[in-house]
Design a protein around this nucleic acid. Structure first.
Lengths: 346, 346
DNA sequence: TTGTACGCGTTATCAT
DNA sequence: ATGATAACGCGTACAA
């Protein structure tokens, strides 16, 4: 059996409670006994038992992180390691541990969350996605369990603490970038329509084109998963239109990569014949060919701030609701080019 | 305060211990009382408190996962989400939760592990990397704490349960593939020399070339981080040699991607002038240009089996030491080509 | 300043 | 088949 607070107490000739107070560094303990106790702790190699502490405290110092459905490939998106890095850093900083929850179906995920919450395994939860009509989110609100979402809640935005980019503006700017280059036929290739981020970016795109009098065409809107396989289908559909687009706003770098590939196979040059701007600025956007013009959304900060905020919430229950916006920045590389006539004629 | 076992006991008119037995589905409880108790549980919305259970059981039903140093970009390698997916699935399956540990420096990582172990936060640990002289590994062995490593331990291989590919053979086969295509000048671009996987693959490479009488040249061995920035340097060095290689064995797809890019910038065609075979078969190897010939190491299985094994170990302490080898498979795409004279003459 | 005693929610042992 | 009771290791109100 491991060494406990009682063993330390015996060696130091004090009561267990005194040892406990030394651990908490209570000011009501004399320096002398503190030293004595600390020596005993070191001598015995004492380490506090977190489980016991949690039970006594009703607090675990653990944060739950809920990932979206790990439907095989979605998960390979480097977005996740990157948020995790931000989360880890912030958590580690405040001595919190991270518990991960995944599942392939929505019910499995909800199940995991219920385990975490009801089982009192975690003090708070970080939701790594935001979609319409999400059961997990509903469950958390209903049970008044502390949580933050990375992304923007679909409804009750003002009542839920969340950390997000201004995706509306980001997409608007990205689209305007293309417009400034002379493009008029701009298509939008987004991820799942259930994701709020897709909705926001679509709205930003729409605003930008409407602002300059370009009509919004349904045929120019393609929704696919945030993945490369999706990209291939999407692009083929678009190019078969009577008036094919000369530029694309793509919701994710990985998807853009797939599109780049498809275009290459079709013998269409980027940015020669089609310009592309995408989102996330993943590592791989630098090494794609050509390197992607991509909106950096500061994924690390998304995770970091979400965690920091959640810790504030769990450690002070009347922390106000916050809406934190992480700045984005368009990184111009080589997938965009001035519009010219040959594009459509080729 | 949440509903406890006692509340249920009262409602069902039984003792708390009986409720506990019903939860464990003890055969020594009559079906009648079981029904009664279960009804009470449902009525009150009872959920067992995992923390309390852990304290009583001395077991948490949590597995710790230790990632390598999150030195900014290394982490973006999709390898990690993919192992995590395997780990999650296996863990979920057996009702285990996953606790993540990261840190940027080695000491920070060790620190996290010590917290997990001494704090009794986890029942066992999965090490997601294997490098020479690893303090974490040493710590775990010294404390006889249950763990498995994904990869091959540098020493005491027979005494440590681990799940790995046969990287030696995989690299040997990859190299032989190039040899069969007529290549004689084959370079090896590996990741950090401290990683055992790098060492194994290098040995496999060496064996393959020695087998056919090709001398091993130091100048043909380049070590860089498993990253794309690294790739760029590596390739420049190689091509400045008197007798530049006509083929490359590259330790990671992400790195290969960087190399592909660099070569393109230098006006060197792949596979026209240089052939490449790399490892991991990440999603992105399909969408690179040209698509990468890559050895699929079945990352998901690596995580899945490691977790399954670890659970076996923690639930039955005299489980024997195991060495599990996950099969690999070379996926031939378009980065390799028959050697011909023009390659060197161009 | 320090010690005593109880509670946190379970499980397990020993009775009955 | 079930109930009392004592752990598990720690925190804390209350007492001294």
């Amino acid at each position: 059996m491991a060494v406990t607070i009682k063993d330390v107490a015996k060696v130091a000739n004090v009561a267990p409670s005194t040892v406990s107070r030394v651990i908490a560094n209570s000011p009501r303990i004399s320096e002398k006994t503190k030293r004595k106790v600390r020596e005993a702790m070191k001598e015995l190699g004492y380490h506090p038992n977190f489980i016991a502490r949690s039970l006594a405290n009703q607090s675990t110092k653990v944060l739950g992180v809920v990932m979206p459905g790990a439907v095989d490939k979605t998960f390979q998106n480097p977005f996740f390691p990157e948020v995790l890095r931000g989360i880890s850093t912030a958590a580690h900083h405040k001595q919190y541990a991270i518990q991960l929850s995944t599942g392939v179906t929505d019910d499995e995920i909800l199940d995991g969350v219920i385990q975490m919450v009801q089982g009192k395994r975690v003090d708070g939860i970080i939701l790594l996605y935001s979609k319409v009509e999400d059961k997990v989110l509903k469950y958390l609100v209903k049970n008044k369990f502390p949580f933050v979402v990375v992304g923007k809640p679909f409804t009750h935005e003002e009542e839920i603490t969340h950390v997000d980019n201004d995706n509306y503006r980001a997409a608007k700017e990205a689209t305007e970038h293309l417009i400034k280059l002379g493009h008029h036929s701009i298509a939008f290739v987004g991820g799942s329509v259930n994701l709020v981020v897709t909705i926001d970016r679509l709205l930003g795109y729409e605003k930008a084109i409407r602002n300059v009098g370009i009509p919004f065409k349904d045929e120019y809107i393609v929704h696919e998963e945030f993945l490369k396989e999706g990209g291939q289908e999407a692009i083929r559909e678009l190019l078969s239109l009577d008036e094919p687009p000369t530029a694309l706003v793509v919701a994710d770098d990985l998807m853009a990569l797939g599109i780049l590939n498809t275009l290459h196979e079709m013998g269409i040059s980027v940015p020669g014949q089609i310009s592309i701007v995408s989102f996330n600025n993943l590592l791989l956007s630098e090494v794609s060919r050509p390197p992607l013009t991509s909106v950096d959304i500061n994924i690390y900060q998304l995770g970091f701030q979400a965690t920091k905020t959640l810790i504030d919430i769990v450690s002070d229950s009347d922390e106000p609701i916050k809406r934190i916006t992480i700045p984005h920045k368009m990184i111009v590389r080589q997938t965009c080019q001035q519009f010219n006539k040959e594009m459509v004629e080729s």
